[in-house]
Amino acid sequence: MKTSPFERVDDTVASFRWRPELDVERIPAPQRIAPSSLAIEASVVTTTGSEVGSGRLIVLHDPDGNPAWDGTFRFVSFCRADVDFDMVNDPLLSEVGWTWLTEALNDAGADYHDASGTVTAVSSRSFGQLATEADRAEVEIRASWTPVFSTDDEVASHIAAWQALLCTTAGLPPLPDGIIPLSGRLDH
């Protein structure tokens, strides 16, 4: 029996080999945006157990196509990570954050179009009775793109690109060429 394009994407997400630093799980997907959707959430965790970043990926599918996407699929991403307090004041951080997305897609060989999004850098400093709390700074990358794929490997390239974006945002170095993470399947 043939599987639908959405089922193939769902299977690819479920069998994807995630980096060991990622704790990935399915979450409820939005129901009103598209006829079919899936969502995952990931935490980037250090070997000491500290969370250094998090993200969500939502895959939307409308078999009839959506003029706003100029396609039948849309990938919607959110990545967030703490950064050095001084880094958040760098005027180039937003441009660099957007480059992380486009480089992740290009490096993974993920064909796409109509990418859009925002990069937000925020900092907070506590005062008064909260003055003992540490300064905080974080970067958020919200992005979406229309993927172009026809094979399972091409689908996997978009998942790999999202993983790379999340890891880069959280400050993890890329895996060396030829290294494959040894993590299990994502349960449905």
Rank of each mutant, 00 (worst) to 15 (best):
Y112D: 07
L101I: 08
L93M: 05
V122N: 13
A115W: 06
V96K: 02
S116E: 14
V122A: 14
G117C: 03
A115Y: 04
T118P: 09
E103I: 02
G128W: 08
G97N: 01
S123Y: 06
Y112N: 13
A110F: 07
S124N: 10
L101C: 09
S116P: 02
D111C: 05
L93I: 07
V96G: 00
S123Q: 11
S123K: 07
F127I: 12
D114R: 14
Y112R: 04
A131R: 07
A110H: 08
D135H: 04
V119P: 00
V122T: 14
W100M: 12
A115C: 09
G128N: 13
T132M: 11
A134I: 06
W98D: 09
S94H: 01
F127Q: 12
W100L: 12
V119Y: 00
A110T: 09
S116H: 05
D135R: 06
S126T: 06
E95G: 15
E103N: 12
V122H: 04
S124T: 12
L130I: 01
A110L: 09
E95D: 13
S116K: 12
Y112G: 10
S124Q: 14
S94T: 09
V119E: 00
V119R: 00
G128D: 14
S124C: 08
V122Y: 02
Y112E: 10
A108H: 03
Q129K: 10
N106D: 15
A134Y: 02
L101H: 02
A131S: 15
G128I: 11
W100Y: 07
T118I: 05
T99R: 03
L101Y: 01
T118G: 13
E95L: 11
A131V: 09
A104W: 01
F127W: 11
A131F: 02
A134W: 00
A121V: 08
T132A: 15
S126F: 11
L105V: 10
F127E: 12
L105D: 12
D107Q: 11
A131Q: 10
A134M: 08
D114L: 15
V119G: 00
S94G: 14
E95P: 02
D114Q: 13
L130D: 06
G128E: 12
G109W: 03
D107G: 10
V96E: 02
A110R: 04
D114T: 14
V119T: 01
S123W: 05
L101G: 01
A121L: 05
A110Y: 05
N106L: 12
G109V: 03
A121D: 09
G97F: 00
V96T: 04
N106I: 11
D107H: 08
E95I: 06
H113G: 15
V96N: 02
T99P: 00
G97P: 01
A108C: 06
G109C: 04
D135C: 03
D111I: 07
A104N: 02
V119I: 03
T120D: 14
G97L: 00
L101S: 03
F127N: 10
S116D: 14
T99N: 04
E133N: 12
A108D: 07
D107E: 15
T118A: 14
W98R: 08
V96H: 03
W98N: 05
R125N: 06
A104G: 06
N106H: 12
D135G: 03
S94K: 03
Q129Y: 08
A134E: 13
A115F: 03
S126W: 05
T102Y: 02
